[in-house]
Amino acid sequence: MSTCSVLLVDDEAEFIETLAKRLTRRGLKVHLAFSGQEALDFLAANEADVAVLDVKMPGMDGIEALQKIKALKPGLEVLMLTAHANVEVAMRGMELGAFDYLMKPVELEELLCKIQDANKKKCLQQ
């Protein structure tokens, strides 16, 4: 598999910076966005294979960001990530095209597997 490009979107800077380091060590190409709008700005000018998107963010929340990301990049696979268990939000995210939904704190191996699965799906659809 070629290097997978992942966009991490979360307002918790320390969390995604640490996660980015761990994913980079595993061979992924990682980009960071600290808000939904920053993610949209990045995606307007760049490509990514998979986005990992926090649900609860100030301003544009993850569900709104997901809708806008899917409108901009329909083929991009998005993993929703949250610390707040909410079945309704998870179902809404899946209805809007999210690939999967993970709970924080997420195990690195589980996240890696989900990113790889999402990337495989993206590649098969191209």
Rank of each mutant, 00 (worst) to 15 (best):
I16N: 11
A51D: 05
G75Q: 10
A85S: 11
M80P: 02
K21C: 10
L102E: 10
L108E: 05
L28M: 15
A51H: 06
T18L: 13
L8G: 03
F42I: 06
H84F: 15
G59T: 09
K121P: 00
K122W: 08
K73T: 05
M57R: 05
N86Q: 14
L111C: 02
A90W: 05
L23M: 07
V6W: 00
V30E: 05
V50R: 04
A33C: 05
L72K: 06
T82C: 11
L28T: 00
M57G: 10
P58A: 11
Q125W: 10
T18E: 06
S5D: 07
L108H: 02
R25F: 09
N46E: 15
F34G: 01
I115R: 11
E17F: 02
P74R: 13
E38A: 15
E88M: 13
K70G: 06
C113E: 13
A44F: 02
E88A: 13
L8H: 04
L8S: 04
A44Y: 03
L108R: 08
E17H: 09
V87Q: 14
K56F: 01
V6N: 04
A71Q: 15
G62D: 09
V9W: 01
G36T: 01
E38P: 01
L23H: 08
N46I: 02
N86A: 12
V55Q: 00
A85F: 06
L111E: 02
M57A: 08
E77T: 07
A98W: 13
A44H: 10
Q67W: 00
P74M: 13
G75R: 11
L40W: 05
D10I: 02
G36Q: 03
L8T: 03
M91C: 09
A48E: 03
A45K: 14
V9E: 00
G62T: 10
E47K: 12
M80R: 05
K68R: 15
N86D: 15
S35A: 12
L66N: 04
V55M: 03
Y101F: 11
E64G: 01
L53A: 10
V50F: 05
L76N: 04
R26F: 11
G27T: 10
L8K: 02
T24G: 01
E14A: 12
L8A: 03
K104T: 11
E64W: 01
P58Q: 02
L28V: 02
A20E: 11
K120H: 06
T24H: 07
G59H: 05
F15I: 11
M57H: 09
E110G: 00
E17Q: 15
